[in-house]
Simulated assay, not measured.
Amino acid sequence: MSKREIKKEAILVAGMEVMKAQGYNGCSVKDIVDAAKVPKGSFYNYFPSKEQFALDAIEFTASEARTHAQALLGDCSECALDRLTRFFHAGIACAESSEFKVGCFLGNMCQEMADSSDSIRQRLDPILNGKTRLIADVIKEGQEGGSVNAAIDAAVAAEFLFNAWEGALMRAKAAKSRKALDAFVAMLKHVL
């Protein structure tokens, strides 16, 4: 990684924390550069706009989330249902570690920006679809292995689970409690 790429990533990571906590509209470029401890001009050397910063933050988050999901969901030493349960328990631990203040960055961006930025909406949709496909693939494996009900449509079940998870994250954030997330995991076995 070049010095330029390292500097850009440092600004991105620091600024993402601000955007995660305050939302896109709740943070300014000044908030981002203050968090990164760089002059405002440095921001524009790497990002032509706040919207481009958000797009890069979405891509960065999606890449990390994809790597994490593949590690948990791709571990074929466990049955599919156990992998899915472990995946969502890891999500609960992450939400709990932020005291339920952050939720899912991608979901938050979707809620906040999908109606006001076509660029952000168009970038988020395939990423969220990709996460859903990962879940569908594990459901299909579970159906083939007998740990998941073969009578359900794997794609529809994955869509339902992913959307229910995002809703549970939103409720956990509102309640500052893991109750909605625990309810989601409790229902996981019944759905599948």
Results as ranks from 00 to 15, higher is better:
Ala183Arg: 00
Lys131Ile: 08
Val156Met: 11
Lys101Gly: 05
Glu112Met: 09
Glu112Trp: 02
Leu12Trp: 00
Arg133Met: 09
Val33Ile: 15
Val185Cys: 11
Lys3Ile: 09
Glu59Trp: 01
Val102Pro: 00
Lys3Asn: 11
Leu188Met: 08
Cys110Ser: 14
Met113Asp: 03
Arg133Tyr: 00
Ala157Leu: 11
Met16Glu: 08
Leu124Asn: 03
Lys140Thr: 13
Glu59Cys: 04
Gly145Lys: 12
Gln111Ser: 09
Leu73Gly: 07
Lys173Val: 06
Glu159Ala: 15
Glu5Pro: 08
Cys76Ala: 12
Ile92Asp: 00
Asn45Trp: 07
Glu17Gln: 15
Thr67Cys: 10
Ala155Pro: 02
Asn108Gln: 11
Thr67Gly: 13
Lys30Ile: 13
Glu144Pro: 01
Phe184Pro: 02
Asp125Thr: 12
Lys37Thr: 08
Glu99Ile: 01
Thr85Met: 03
Ala168Glu: 05
Glu99Pro: 02
Arg171Val: 09
Leu124Met: 10
Gln70Glu: 15
Arg123Lys: 15
Asp125Ile: 13
Leu188Trp: 00
Phe105Cys: 06
Arg4Tyr: 12
Asp115Ile: 08
Glu96Gly: 07
Asn45Gln: 14
Ser117Gly: 10
Ala57Gln: 03
Arg178Cys: 10
Gly91Leu: 01
Ala95Met: 06
Met170Leu: 14
Lys131Tyr: 15
Glu9Arg: 15
Lys173Ile: 06
Leu12Met: 09
Asn129His: 10
Ile11Asp: 00
Glu96Asp: 13
Arg66Thr: 15
Ile58Met: 13
Thr132Ile: 04
Ala90Gln: 05
Gly146Ile: 14
Lys20Asp: 03
Arg121Val: 02
Lys8His: 07
Asp56Lys: 10
Glu64Met: 10
Met19Glu: 03
Gly142Asp: 08
Glu112Thr: 08
Ala21Lys: 13
Glu9Asn: 12
Arg171Asp: 11
Met187Asp: 11
